[in-house]
Simulated assay, not measured.
Amino acid sequence: MHFKTGHSSLRVAAAIGAFALVAGCSSIQNTRGYLVDEVLVAAVQPGLDNQESVRGTLGRPTLTSQFGDPVWYYISSRTNQRPFTTPRIATHSVLAVRFDEAGNVISADRTGMDKVVLLDPDSGKTPTLGRHRSLLEDLFGNIGTVGAPGVGGGGGGPG
């Protein structure tokens, strides 16, 4: 009988371990920015609403334009991440509410993943213009050039 109890506890431990493994491999979802409510977004109407009514309906914008026509941006993004991997964008939404000079809504446009750009840098180095110098050239390259006529701004004395 004692032998069967050992098998039973072994099965329970195996089941708990399998559950922990499956739970640990699940994806983590992270939502950032404005939480979109479709009913409220649909309530913003060009020609009827102004900045005050949009602020009352949607709340403060995530970003506002600094130049040109006034535009309020409501940005929302949801990422998924499996353990030990980098997060990947699952959904992305930008609501751009444009206003005229009087503060009335001109348009309310919504974009999504079609406007997201994923950048992939070439390497761990930053490309620069100019010469590629060795360590010794960096250390000793300026010897003789400091104070030479026509090079740098050397010497501040009377001349």
Rank of each mutant, 00 (worst) to 15 (best):
A102C: 01
G24Y: 14
T111N: 04
E137N: 04
G154K: 07
F67D: 13
K4D: 03
V44F: 10
V41N: 02
T85M: 03
T126Y: 14
A102G: 01
P46M: 04
T91A: 04
W72G: 00
A90N: 08
A42R: 15
G24T: 07
S27Q: 09
R98P: 06
A42F: 01
Q51N: 12
N50I: 13
R60D: 14
V12L: 14
A42D: 14
G150C: 07
S65R: 08
P121Q: 05
G150T: 06
E38M: 07
S77N: 04
A14Y: 11
E38C: 00
R78K: 13
T145D: 09
G112R: 00
G33D: 00
D49A: 13
L48W: 10
G112N: 03
L63N: 02
E137D: 09
G17P: 03
P70F: 05
T128H: 13
E52A: 09
P61N: 04
A43Y: 01
H7T: 06
F67H: 11
L35H: 02
F67P: 04
G141V: 04
L136D: 06
P127F: 12
D37F: 00
E137T: 05
L135V: 08
T57Q: 08
V39M: 09
T111H: 05
G56N: 11
G130K: 06
H92R: 05
V97A: 10
Q81D: 00
P46K: 00
T85S: 02
P46T: 04
H132A: 08
V12G: 10
G159T: 09
Y34L: 02
R55N: 06
V151C: 02
V117K: 11
L40R: 10
D69F: 11
V12F: 15
A148M: 09
S107G: 12
V71W: 10
V97M: 10
D114I: 02
